[in-house]
């Protein structure tokens, strides 16, 4: 099934529908954050710090009197932006490594996969902490850390797809007709291997949002006053007794988004009927 049709049909399943609505909403919030937000995300008013939710401030205010609702809207842009960008890069790199390894086979395969497996050996959080120690904190290095941390799984998945496809008769026929390696790889193998990798990437985006939040907790992610959801929660830890909403709402935003991504991704896997192919990595 074409991926476009599958996206729609997944959104019509009982599981996919609510998830799709949430995701469309989050993306909408991320894109139009500056129009939707009632206040600027960095506007402080120390006299109005830690106010509970009210008509003026739908979700209350934080320790600097900033409007939480506005910050969560802008946070959607940053958290989603970082997660999508870095997972996008991770998928692209993984595809390149995996495709070359799977297609070339032999020592090239072994060498490439050994390199990839070195990152696979460490928990993502450790890779991220060490890389950020080298690069310095900030959104850019967070993105690099996430990209490297998740790359191994895409490379392995892509490689498995390519190896499986390589054995198919039509590919062997194409080789027989004298097609070049680049032609076979780019026109036949990669497009067919793409779908499962993209879906895996989509699922990983949820994990990436959580990883960004954790890095934010260690003070390493988005630098203030930029409001990523993780950074907001990390700042809220000190206030959690006085003003629980400061930490509860960003946490909910993360949980709802990530669950929606997973449910929708699951529905999509069923719609595309690629559950088996996903497991091959």
């Amino acid at each position: 099934m074409a991926i476009g049709t599958a996206l729609l049909s997944a959104a019509r399943t009982p599981r996919g529908a609510p998830a799709a609505i949430v995701l469309v909403g989050v993306v909408f919030a991320a894109i139009f954050a500056d129009r939707l937000a009632p206040y600027a995300y960095d506007m402080q008013s120390l006299m109005q710090a830690n106010l509970p939710p009210s008509a003026a401030h739908l979700l209350g205010t934080d320790e600097f009197g900033r409007d939480l609702f506005s910050r969560i809207l802008h946070g959607a842009r940053i958290s989603l932006g970082v997660a999508v960008t870095s997972i996008g890069a991770s998928v692209a790199l993984g595809l390149v490594f995996g495709a070359i390894a799977g297609y070339a086979g032999g020592w090239a395969d072994r060498l490439l996969m050994a390199v990839v497996d070195l990152t696979w050996a460490f928990p993502e959080i450790l890779i991220a902490l060490v890389l950020i120690a080298i690069l310095g904190p900030g959104l850019g290095s967070t993105a690099v850390a996430i990209t490297v941390g998740y790359m191994a799984q895409f490379a392995r998945l892509a490689r498995a797809q390519i190896i499986a496809l390589k054995g198919e008769t039509y590919i062997e026929a194409t080789v027989g007709l004298g097609a070049g390696h680049a032609h076979i790889l780019l026109r036949h193998l990669v497009p067919n291997a793409l779908t499962p990798v993209l879906v895996a990437g989509m699922l990983a985006t949820g994990d990436a949002i959580v990883l960004e939040a954790t890095l934010g907790y260690f003070g390493l992610g988005a630098q203030p006053p930029l409001p990523s959801w993780g950074a907001m929660m990390s700042a809220g830890v000190g206030q959690m007794f006085l003003a629980p909403w400061v930490i509860v709402f960003p946490g909910l935003a993360i949980a709802i988004t990530v669950v929606a991504i997973n449910l929708y991704g699951d529905a999509l896997i069923d719609a595309l009927q690629i559950r088996n192919r996903l497991r091959e990595g």
Partner: peptide, 25 residues
């Protein structure tokens, strides 16, 4: 320091400085 630096940044902005924050270990 993380809390303080945000307030300092906002106070600098009020007189016309744009300050970019970085938090290091």
């Amino acid at each position: 320091f993380k809390r303080l630096v945000e307030v300092v940044q906002s106070q600098l902005k009020a007189v016309g400085f744009a300050a970019d924050i970085t938090i290091f270990d």
